[in-house]
Design a protein around this nucleic acid. Structure first.
Length: 930
RNA sequence: GCUCGGAUGGUGGAACUGGUAGACACGCAGGACUUAAAAUCCUGUGACCCUUAAAGGUCGUGCGGGUUCGAUUCCCGCUCCGAGUACCA
């Protein structure tokens, strides 16, 4: 039989499932290796060819590690809470659980078709009550914890209460809300229970507070910053407004410094680490107070306290609370106008408008903290209320924005360093040179000046050193149905945790998935849903990132462990520890990957897990973009669309509008006209203007999405070429990290390769036939080259080059007509991580027990087979290659030089000159310098 | 603007620590087999020049410089493309 991929692949997929081939044990003598994929949200569109890119890579790696003798944990699951299923529920009334179940089954079928070696017995679904019980449990731990800055870790809230009872809040170093009170032990004891709870909430790592949130009226929900694009919701594109609301928050800022430091010890791509660093946004500087006549002060944050003497004005954000009081009567109109103007500007306007300099003078002055000189106070929208203190000290000689502002409004620009140049043209932020015009720091350098300045400010009580972060606490509530219920009820207006034994708090049934008439979240619709019969539950649910912030630990629990009373057994965590390799997209850089690190550190502090960082090594796979096809509808004189379509090359002669057309009815940009007529019923009697009797479609590279009709499903490709071909082709496309548009051109080459491989061990009538003769030296050489190459390539995640090398190897062996058992047997093992189905089939045909391939030992590379006696040296003159000479590798430089110089063919290149020098690199090159 | 990537034949890409640029594959062209087509197999394929041919030469990794015996690789300056981020004091 010829290479019957469909039959082979189906058969082995069934075999693996029935024999639990990839089930992994938590007890093993072997070293552990944990390979994780970012689990998908099971969307209704199913998998497209872009999804498996990372999964294929991780599967190859997992299979390879098994061959190398590791006990490999390679699980898969579903991030199954989320907005799309809820939106579908709102439209159709179908319960999101049903939609989700259907989608998961479809995903599973598609994943199985690809022959992945997942241990499916460990599957997780975030929407499963048995799973979210533990998401709720972690929430409760966070609620019962505070961050002790002395031990630099999270501790039980009971410890904090003890401290309060013993010595009050004075001297406690903790991360807390800014309005945390200072009280003595006696005062604490006198507080009512409600007051005590209110105070403790300011320390808990998950806490309730009023915060401004992105409220989307159309979706009836709060959105995360990263779900809002330019003032509109990312999904659906509805307007989003700012609204104050009581929200659950996570005190991730307590971990800002550890999140930053941890980046130094993990093997992640540099761009991704850089994104997290920027997101956390640590800046070291100082808070400086500028006194006001009223006795109050304006506090600013600066990273350049050394430039204090260059401050010629202050700028407040228009929203700053002091603006109203500072505005003098003659400036009220101007300031009010400016504030109104700012309010009108949408975020979009503000973004587009970074070049215009605008602002208004309040009429008031503050006092310079050291010199006492009057400093005018302005407002401007380039100062953001949400960062630092919402006020800056403007140093036009050192900061370009301040310089532009000063230049526009005629404010003074004072040089503060002897190294500053050309202040007429632009600001000069240099730290070089010695200070001038700067009172107490004149003549000092940058480092000295900063220290002197901070000491002076502290002495005067006018400032102090301060570290500032851009990172905000993460909002943890969503006004949605399809998410984890927050395990909290309210008593006397205060949040209380439900009892541990009442977990999981199961998502109740509702009649509709919309907010209630009074604007409460959908859970407000649930009937008789009260704690202990009469206490109100929290009605918001957790955000999408809750379930994904700890899921890799749940995989450590085998199916038998799942009923035990822990999120994962301690001995399993002690064994698997952390994820050795994590593969996923870089779009999760500042979301999932940051929150997961946060929760991991928290769980570590409490002793539940053993590693500080959850993901030791991370690889970002590139995004596979779609290739959209377009047809061009002719627009008539009235501007209406006709039912006539013109081919791409002729469209300039007409007024047209471009329409996406299903890429599956277009072949090499030629539209299948009959299929187009049934593509949509309105096109049933479409007419066409053709070029060369063909309708040519337009092309564009875009994100793959259902609405653009450019989704290519792996199913069709597997149907035509098989899973092994698809797996190898996706790897062959290029480096894993690189983004690229999907293109099937070239898949034939991979398919032909697998057929050639099959034919190696089959005769012309396709009967399996191998020889037991001893392989030749050339055959061993081909084999050992690939053994080494694949090992090297996989270790550095260069999967595309392995595929090329496999092709070279099979081409060589085909030329040698090699069908030696000894060669093919090892080759099958080496290829099995890439093309597991064909490999299993041949492995069995070779007489091995079915299913044993996955744990066969990876062949040992023997360098002896690759030893060469001679090398064909490129001989170059002044760097230009002129000829190749076969020379023994055992010769010394002097002997080689003698051979070279006696070579008569070389004379014409030497132009009669004597070589000045001969460069000889053994096994590489000979270069003659004349 | 800032940060991080990237630019190599008609196309996807290879060249791992500076050592024969274009591996491998697609596409294309020619040929074999076939009544024919498909499939398969063989040959050629960076550009230009020279030559009847064999052979040979020049240029060539976005652009301009530099270091080096030797640069796709290292350094400096620039152009363009992509991603992320948005006035962060």
């Amino acid at each position: 039989m010829d290479y019957q991929f469909r039959d082979i692949e189906k058969r082995w997929q069934k075999f693996w499932a029935m024999n639990h081939t990839f089930r992994v044990d938590n007890n093993s003598e072997k070293p552990k290796y944990y390979v994780l994929d970012m689990f998908p949200y099971p969307s209704g569109a199913g998998l497209h060819v872009g999804h498996p890119l990372g999964y294929i890579a991780s599967d190859i790696f997992s299979r390879y590690k098994r061959l190398k003798g590791f006990n490999v944990l390679h699980p898969m699951g579903y991030d199954s809470f989320g907005l799309p299923a809820e939106q579908y529920a709102i439209q159709t009334g179908q319960h999101p659980a049903i939609t989700t179940e259907t989608n998961i089954n479809r995903y599973r079928e598609q994943l199985d078709n690809l022959g992945f070696s997942y241990d499916w017995s460990r599957e997780v679904r975030t929407s499963d009550p048995g799973y979210y019980k533990w998401t709720q449990w972690i929430f409760m731990l966070l609620f019962n914890s505070w961050y002790n800055l002395e031990s630099n870790k999270a501790e039980s809230i009971e410890e904090l209460i003890k401290k309060f009872e013993n010595s009050g809040s004075q001297g406690i170093k903790a991360v807390s809300d800014e309005d945390a009170e200072i009280f003595s032990a006696e005062q604490w004891k006198l507080k009512s229970d409600i007051d005590k709870q209110t105070e403790l909430l300011k320390y808990r790592l998950t806490y309730l507070r009023e915060s401004t949130v992105n409220w989307c009226p159309a979706l009836g929900t709060v959105l995360a910053n990263d779900e809002v694009k330019d003032g509109y919701s990312e999904r659906g594109g509805y307007p989003v407004e700012q609204k104050k609301m009581m929200q659950w928050s996570m005190r991730i800022t307590a971990y800002a410094d550890r999140l930053l430091q941890g980046l130094d010890n993990i093997d992640w791509p540099d761009p991704l680490k850089e994104m997290q660093r920027n997101w956390i946004g640590k800046s070291v500087g100082a808070l400086v107070r500028f006194g006001l006549n009223s006795g109050a002060f304006i506090e600013v944050f600066t990273t350049r306290v050394d430039t204090l003497y260059g401050t010629t004005f202050l700028v407040l954000a228009p929203e700053h609370e002091l603006v109203e009081g500072l505005t003098t009567p003659d400036h009220i109109e101007e300031i009010q106008n400016y504030i109104d103007q700012t309010k009108k500007k949408t975020e979009l306007d503000r973004m587009a408008d970074t070049k215009t300099v605008s602002g208004a003078f309040t009429g008031s002055y503050a006092k310079h903290p050291i010199s006492g000189a009057p400093v005018p106070i302005w407002i401007a929208d380039y100062v953001l209320a949400g960062y630092g203190t919402g006020a800056v000290m403007a140093v036009p000689s050192g900061d370009q924005r301040d310089w532009l502002f000063a230049t526009k409004f005629g404010l003074p620009i004072v040089a503060i360093s002897d190294a500053q140049l050309d202040l007429d043209m632009q600001a000069d932020p240099t730290k070089d040179g010695l200070y001038i015009n700067s009172g107490i720091i004149n003549g000092l350098n940058y480092k000295q000046a900063t220290a002197v300045m901070i000491a002076k400010l502290e002495e005067l009580g006018a400032g102090k050193a301060k570290v500032n972060y851009r990172l905000r606490d993460a909002i943890f509530g969503r006004q949605r149905y399809w998410g984890e219920p927050v395990p909290v009820y309210f008593k006397d207006g205060l949040p209380q945790l439900i009892a541990m034994e009442d977990l999981p708090l199961v998502l109740p049934e509702v009649d509709k998935y919309l907010p209630t008439e009074s604007g409460e979240p959908p859970l407000g619709r649930a009937e008789n849903w009260k704690y202990k019969g009469d206490l109100e539950y929290e009605l918001s649910t957790m955000p999408g990132w809750a379930g994904s912030s700890w899921y890799w630990y749940r995989y450590m629990a085998s199916q038998d462990d799942r009923n035990q009373d822990s999120f994962a057994p301690a001995n399993a965590i002690a064994y698997w520890k952390d994820v050795d390799l994590y593969i996923g997209g870089s779009e999760h850089a500042t979301g999932h990957l940051l929150y997961s690190r946060f929760w991991n550190k928290f769980l570590k502090d409490l002793g539940y897990v053993v590693e500080e960082e959850p993901f030791k090594k991370l690889i970002n796979q590139g995004m596979i973009q779609g290739r959209s096809n377009f047809v061009y509808r002719i627009i008539d004189q009235d501007g209406r669309g006709t039912n006539k379509f013109v081919s791409h090359g002729l469209k300039s002669q007409y007024t047209t509008s471009a329409l996406h057309v299903d890429v599956n009815i277009v072949f090499n940009e030629v539209l299948d006209l009959e299929k187009f007529k049934v593509f949509r019923s309105e096109f049933a009697d479409a007419e066409f203007i053709l070029e060369n009797d063909k309708y040519i479609c337009g092309v564009e590279v875009e994100k793959m999405s259902k609405s653009k009709f450019n989704v290519v499903s792996p199913d069709d490709i597997i149907e035509r070429y098989g899973a092994d071909t698809l797996r190898m082709y996706e790897m062959f496309l290029g480096p894993l990290e690189q983004s690229k548009p999907w293109n099937t051109n070239g898949i034939e080459g991979v398919f032909k390769f697998l057929r050639k491989f099959w034919k190696l061990s089959h005769d012309d009538e396709f009967n399996f036939k191998v020889s037991d003769d001893e392989p030749s030296k050339a055959e061993y050489k081909a084999l050992h080259k690939i053994i080494r190459k694949v090992e090297e390539d996989i270790e550095r995640f260069s999967f595309n080059t392995s595929v090329s090398s496999f092709m070279i190897c099979i081409n060589e062996l085909t030329d040698l007509k090699c069908n030696k058992r000894k060669i093919i047997q090892d080759l099958v093992i080496v290829l099995s991580s890439y093309a597991p189905h064909i490999s299993e089939e041949l492995w069995t045909l070779l007489g091995n027990a079915p299913g044993t391939l996955s744990v066969a030992p990876y062949p040992v590379f023997n360098p002896e087979y690759l030893v060469e006696n001679e090398f064909s040296y490129p001989v170059s003159v002044n760097g230009k290659t002129r000829m190749n000479l076969n020379i023994s590798l055992s010769l010394s430089q002097a002997e080689v030089e003698a051979i070279i110089l006696s070579n008569t063919d070389l004379e014409k290149y030497l132009e009669g000159k004597t070589p000045k020098k001969i460069i000889f690199v053994k096994g590489k090159i000979i270069n003659i310098v004349i």
